[in-house]
Nucleic acid binder design. Structure first.
Lengths: 234, 234
DNA sequence: TAGTGGTCTAGACCACTGT
DNA sequence: CAGTGGTCTAGACCACTAG
């Protein structure tokens, strides 16, 4: 038999949950009962149960037992990457602005920095077939000695821009997604009318001490660009 | 010491990855090397490594070893629930339409059903402080014997509406997020002008055989409603 | 062939929960 | 108290990889 015991056991329990033999809140048989029932060692039972815990079908309470989770189908996995979440990858990315500036009040607040601290501002336009389909603006606190490499910045995702002295593993990302009408300058960049519906993604990056290390917004032409997400059960 | 060995070991390796002692693609010490290095049993080492595999810091290749992952910071966790992703929970939900109808061509295609198969249509408006902030429409294939309970449907999330004979664990959800200008009927429901930017979430539900069991769209007034997501490293 | 990860066993001790 | 899950040990055999 190619299929490991612990997979068979956890699949068995999973199907009991799927078919409502076991319902949210119900206790699962104890490790000892399962060990006897399937005739395997305790570690094998634990491996099966650990798998279900990781996939959030059940949860363990020390001293009491395992219980079926209240399902949270509201949790989804969203793949977001400003250069490739666009409808088809963009043919070209134009770097229209790259500067070290004093932060505006808004930028200072978002990055939690004093107003003397210079920041790098990057503005890009994403095009497909010659037409602008999205634009973005990013702000990164500037520290002396960090080179500004146009070519690198142009095609990087925001985390890649920031992750220079720290590993990209150390960076946390938070997104706010909303819809907005194009304002004057954005409309001009996207060659659209003012008020055109845009999908906007505000992006915050933090280092491993929760200090902001990047802030920006990407605007995508509404009807041409989509984000996709799916519920993360397996 | 309250902290388990396997946590100490995996945290140790994690910090080596964070501080770029280990970089994406690099091999991690083998289980045997780690066992000797930390003076623990192989199972303890494996538990530490399994933890890092689950959190996608490293991955295992049978017969070769463990390697540091190429980080995928584009993966985010999005919490979406049409009744509560709105800015502050809505005070009231109005059920403005509940009917069993023949599917339009669009609905038939989305639900992959023949045009004789009746569907339930549900339309709601979400209000806050008396003002409409969002509206939705859902379609569910109708099967005889399923009661239509107005009160239940009104305050349910889409998966809850569908999960009657199947466990909610058996349902898969896929989302498409985009921006759109309000069309005539939507604008009227939301008491807004035509063309007002809306955040739209198209929702597909599938059963455990990947058969569509629900389709719908929620429109939210753009500037007042946000979706939040964050990168899922721990 | 030696080394790797993948699976599995049969014990052990602990802290915590219920009665 | 007996039962639960949480941690840990010291073995074992397997399939796979590489020199």
């Amino acid at each position: 038999m190619g299929i490991p015991e612990y997979i068979r056991i956890s699949d068995d329990l999973k199907s009991q949950i799927m078919s409502q033999v076991l319902n949210p809140g119900d206790p699962v048989q104890s490790e000892n009962q399962l060990r006897e029932h399937y005739g395997v060692s305790r570690m094998t039972v634990r491996k099966a149960l650990t798998r279900l815990v990781n996939e959030e079908y059940i949860h363990a309470v020390a001293g009491k037992g395992y219980f079926v989770c209240e399902p949270g189908l509201e949790k989804c996995e969203l793949i977001y990457d400003e250069t490739f979440s666009l409808s088809g990858s963009p043919d070209s990315i134009d770097l229209i602005d790259l500067d070290v500036i004093k932060p505006t009040q808004m930028v200072g607040i978002k990055l939690e920095i004093p107003k003397e601290q210079p920041v790098i501002m990057i503005r890009r336009v994403f095009k497909e077939g010659g037409e602008a389909i999205a634009c973005d603006v990013k702000y990164i606190p500037y520290h002396r000695g960090i080179p500004l490499l146009e070519k690198e910045l142009k095609n990087s995702t925001f985390p890649e821009m920031v992750a220079r002295k720290n590993s990209i593993f150390a960076i946390t990302k938070k997104l706010r997604i909303f819809a907005a009408g194009a304002e004057e300058d954005t409309a001009r960049l996207l060659n659209a009318e003012e008020g055109t519906p845009l999908l906007a993604v505000e992006e915050f990056l933090y280092d491993n001490h929760d200090k902001p290390v990047g802030w920006g917004i990407t605007y995508m032409l509404g009807e041409r660009n989509n984000l996709y997400a799916e519920a993360s059960f397996k």
